[in-house]
């Protein structure tokens, strides 16, 4: 699975200090619910992204627990305060132990 997973993140390149910005994220992932069966009738084991976090300069923005009811290719949109220039770190936690990470810097005008 890991090789097929691809995160996309949209963050403005710059903001004014104290601005609230909108962040959009999407990651390619099956989000196999664990409730389905294969053609032979055997249950297909669950494999989902179970947690998503976003931090900015070491401080948390959002921390989400995700369940199998989240759609394939999970999409998450939220807002962040930007007190100063710095770096956003995005992490998606896979049931298989993989952690997919993406970083975006933002300048303060």
């Amino acid at each position: 699975m890991a090789s097929a997973v691809k995160p996309r993140v949209k963050v403005p390149k710059s903001a004014a200090a104290g601005d609230v910005i909108t962040i959009k994220t999407l990651i390619s992932h099956k989000m196999e619910s664990g409730l389905r069966k294969d053609k032979q009738g055997n249950p297909i084991p669950r494999q989902i992204i179970n947690r998503f976090t976003c931090d900015f300069n070491g401080q948390n923005v959002i921390d989400i627990t995700l369940e199998p009811a989240i759609s394939t290719n999970p999409y998450i949109q939220f807002s962040a305060k930007v007190p100063e220039a710095g770096e956003f770190v995005f992490k998606w936690f896979d049931d298989d132990g993989s952690v997919y990470e993406e970083r975006k810097t933002i300048a303060v005008a």
């Binding site: 910005i21 921390d63 989400i64 995700l66 369940e67 009811a69 807002s79 007190p83």
Partner: peptide, 24 residues
Amino acid sequence: PSPKVATVNFGPLAGNQSCALRIR
């Protein structure tokens, strides 16, 4: 069948307490 969808925790740098998701 399993009613839980997501639990969103807002940190100190959350811009507001809103969030958009796509669900089943």
